[in-house]
Amino acid sequence: FDIYVVTADYLPLGAEQDAITLREGQYVEVLDAAHPLRWLVRTKPTKSSPSRQGWVSPAYLDRRL
């Protein structure tokens, strides 16, 4: 999967189903980028939180090589 970094805090609107909150600087794996406005991502697990999966706007993501 492609690795992206979150460029700004992402707080989903209440109406968005299956969306997750992301923090600036967080790394995520993009699982599904087929839709231009919503990408399915999975967060990297940390010592304090397990990995999470949900939909985010790709405008908040920047690809890492």
Rank of each mutant, 00 (worst) to 15 (best):
L61Q: 00
D2P: 15
E16C: 08
V28C: 03
G14A: 14
D32R: 04
K47H: 12
V28K: 00
P50S: 06
V5M: 10
L65M: 13
T21K: 09
Y10N: 04
R64F: 15
R23I: 11
V28E: 00
D2G: 11
K47A: 14
G54T: 05
Q53G: 03
E29W: 15
F1L: 10
R38K: 11
L31G: 01
E16M: 10
D9S: 06
S49A: 14
R38L: 11
H35E: 10
Q26N: 05
P58R: 04
I3C: 08
P58Q: 03
T43K: 02
T46G: 09
R63I: 13
Q26P: 00
G14D: 15
A19V: 09
E24Y: 12
P36Y: 05
T43N: 02
Y10F: 11
T46H: 08
D62A: 15
A19F: 12
E24N: 08
V56Q: 01
D9T: 06
Q17R: 11
F1I: 09
P12S: 08
Q53E: 13
V41Q: 00
A8G: 07
G25C: 03
H35L: 08
L65K: 09
K47Q: 11
E29V: 10
G14T: 13
R38Q: 07
R64C: 11
F1G: 11
D62I: 12
P58I: 04
S51C: 04
T43D: 02
A34Y: 08
K47P: 13
V6M: 03
L40I: 02
E16L: 09
G14Y: 12
P12V: 08
R42F: 03
V30T: 02
R63F: 15
G14S: 14
I3K: 03
S48P: 04
L13S: 15
S57E: 08
D32W: 11
E16P: 08
L61R: 00
T46D: 12
V5S: 04
A59I: 12
Q53V: 15
K44E: 11
A33G: 10
Y27A: 05
Y27E: 14
V56C: 06
Y4P: 00
G25V: 01
L37A: 11
W39K: 00
A15S: 15
L40S: 01
V6I: 05
R52L: 14
P58W: 03
L65Y: 14
P50K: 07
Q53I: 15
V28T: 01
Y60H: 09
E24M: 14
G14E: 15
R52S: 10
Q53T: 15
P36M: 05
P45M: 06
L65E: 15
R42T: 03
T43E: 03
D9M: 04
R63N: 10
T46P: 03
V28S: 00
I3N: 04
A33H: 09
R63K: 15
A15M: 13
L11V: 14
T43F: 05
F1R: 10
D18G: 14
G54K: 01
G14C: 09
V41S: 00
G54P: 00
L40G: 00
I3V: 12
A34V: 09
V41E: 00
L31Y: 02
V56D: 00
S48Y: 13
Y10T: 06
Y27Q: 10
P50Y: 05
Y10E: 02
A19S: 12
R64M: 15
D2F: 14
V56H: 00
L65W: 14
H35D: 15
T7S: 07
L31R: 02
P45H: 07
